[in-house]
Computed example of a mutant assay.
Amino acid sequence: MYKVRLQELCREAHFPVAEFGSEHFVVTPGIAGDLRILPYVEQWKKALSSGWYHVRMADHSIFIFSEGAKPSYAFLHSPLQIVTFAEYLEALGERDTPRARALHREDYAHVFDTASLREYVTPIRFDYDAASYRAGARPAAHIHIGLDNEIRLAANKMSAVSFLLFVMRQMYPKCWERLLGRQKRDWLVRPIRGESTELPKELWSQVDRIELHLA
């Protein structure tokens, strides 16, 4: 439903996507439950090895989009301290071609398997849960940043597209700058600040407006 739009954005921004996941992949309650109980690194490994993602980046970070009445969009920042496959080939003096990738695939797999962990990671997740809303305390639409904290940044409604744009701006700023370099920017505004992103009045009270929010 959003794959075509995402691909268009990624092309325009030169977003370093390694691959898009299966168009048939859906986050089921079982998958969500399996991931939720795992520590972060194991959660990322499980999702990556199982193909439970919608976008896999060249740096091995992944995006997972869960739709429905309570949409949730996640960016799992790769915990590995590792060069991309393209960077690995460049260090060998090779061009990044299908032939070069096939020739060095096993060597790069070893680099992947033996890579050390980053000291810090910055996962990002958007949740929309109207039933859990509490004025001034728990925003219906909010963004989590990092691990093991109580951060919930109040936000407008988001879609998979606007979430990807948010992560692009924060984690891949050069790509965001390329998008802003386009002559026509109006097409960026609609998914970020269009009418469809507005919260119902009953989920956005005066007391909610006191805090700094993403809107």
Rank of each mutant, 00 (worst) to 15 (best):
M1N: 09
K3E: 14
V4S: 11
V4D: 14
H14W: 03
F15S: 08
P16A: 03
S22Q: 02
E23Y: 05
T28R: 02
T28L: 08
L35P: 08
A47Y: 15
L48G: 01
L48W: 08
W52S: 13
Y53D: 13
Y53M: 05
H54R: 09
A58T: 00
A58W: 00
A58R: 05
I62F: 05
I64E: 09
F65Q: 01
S66A: 15
S66D: 11
S66C: 10
G68A: 00
G68D: 09
P71T: 09
P71W: 05
Y73R: 00
A74H: 00
A74G: 00
P79Y: 04
A86Q: 11
A86V: 02
E90G: 05
E90Q: 11
L92Q: 08
L92P: 02
L92C: 05
R95Q: 00
A100R: 03
R101N: 03
L103F: 13
H104Y: 15
E106V: 04
D113A: 14
A115R: 08
S116A: 14
L117Y: 12
E119G: 06
V121D: 03
V121Q: 04
R125Y: 02
R125D: 00
D127W: 02
A130F: 06
A130C: 10
S132N: 12
R134H: 06
A135N: 12
A137K: 08
R138H: 15
A140D: 13
I143M: 08
I145F: 05
G146R: 12
D148N: 13
N149D: 07
E150G: 05
E150C: 07
I151K: 07
I151W: 04
A154L: 05
A155V: 11
M158G: 01
V161W: 03
V161A: 06
V161S: 07
L164K: 07
L164V: 15
L165H: 05
F166Y: 15
F166N: 15
F166P: 13
P173V: 10
E177C: 05
R178Q: 08
L180Q: 12
G181I: 07
R182E: 10
Q183F: 00
D186G: 10
E195S: 09
T197G: 03
E198M: 11
Q206T: 04
V207S: 01
V207Y: 00
D208F: 00
D208I: 00
R209E: 13
H213C: 09
L214T: 07
A215V: 10
